[in-house]
């Protein structure tokens, strides 16, 4: 039996190969199209979901994992590990943490074996926290050590993203500050940063290129401040070329200890729309 099992939601955007390599258990969020539910990244492809989104925005929605699926996954992991560390998306962004708490409550005698960690992060930032914790778990470190590593990574990781089309975000109502932005005259591509568990606009460059360069600058500065290679993750919504451009910009001036590119989960992509590109790093 493993000492520690790492569980996280599909919002962590962990590529399938790393799920297996690091033995991370990923709980799928739900995508709902015309009253039919699909498990994120399992029952529907990204392209299919965005096609449906474009056709009829109002008929698509997203949902936290069902209580049943959460209990099921936790019960399964409890059989394979002494303790579970469940790393959720920022509780300010989703009800996953609450749903997971309810699921843990239903596990009665085993509830103390599970610890929930609000990552205060999302996307690959959340994924990198889970991956660091999973690596520690795989090394055989005890639960407390794994938890500390997860917390330490959560305190260090930064996430910036550029929105290509503000309409989706405006419709979602997810980022109130966005209402202050108008894009009638200017070709603004706002850059958001995860700050205190929330995505906040930090810059409004007047072109996509400038926005990507702004994100790259943040990663490069992190590299320079830390004085060591950074761990880099890129994500995008149907914008692979832009993600590659961003990666190249960063790598041109910053050394990377690790790097991967992930598809931004449609669970959040519904609110950002296609064209989103971002990076998380620490």
């Amino acid at each position: 039996m493993k000492k520690v099992s790492i569980v996280t939601g599909s919002t962590a955007c962990i590529p399938a190969e790393f799920e297996h390599e690091y033995e991370i258990s990923v709980v799928p969020f739900m995508l709902i199209i015309k009253d039919k539910s699909y498990r994120d990244n399992i029952d529907i492809t990204i392209e299919e979901f965005y096609k449906a989104l474009e056709e009829d925005y109002a008929m698509t929605s997203t949902s936290v994992p069902s209580l049943g699926s959460l209990v099921e996954i936790l019960e399964k992991e409890l059989k394979e590990a002494e303790r579970i560390l469940y790393i959720t998306i920022s509780s300010t962004m989703s009800g996953e943490y609450d749903a997971a708490s309810s699921a843990v409550d239903k596990l009665n005698k085993d509830r103390d074996r599970i610890v929930l960690l609000d990552s205060r992060m999302a996307a690959t930032g959340q994924g990198q926290i889970a991956m660091e914790a999973a690596m520690a778990a795989k090394r055989g470190e005890d639960f407390q050590s794994v938890l500390e590593i997860a917390k330490q990574t959560a305190s260090e990781v930064k996430l910036h993203a550029m929105i290509d089309n503000l309409e989706y975000l405006k419709r979602s109502g997810r980022v109130s500050a966005i209402s202050a932005l108008a894009v009638n005259t200017l070709n603004i591509k706002p850059v958001f940063q995860f700050i205190d568990g929330e995505a906040k606009p930090v810059a409004k460059p007047r072109s996509k290129k400038k926005a990507l360069e702004r994100i790259a600058r943040e990663a490069i500065e992190t590299f320079r401040k830390k004085g060591r290679p950074i761990n880099l993750a890129l994500f995008h919504v149907l914008a692979e070329d832009d993600a590659k451009f961003l990666e190249n910009k960063i790598r041109a001036e910053a050394e990377c200890e690790s790097s991967f590119t992930a598809h931004f989960t449609p669970v959040m992509g519904k609110h950002t729309g296609p064209g989103l590109v971002g990076a998380s790093f620490y």
Binding site: A177, I195, K200, P201, A203, K204, K210
Partner: peptide
């Protein structure tokens, strides 16, 4: 300069 202005940080 305005590209960097937000009253939220």
């Amino acid at each position: 300069a305005m590209e960097e202005y937000f009253d939220n940080g």
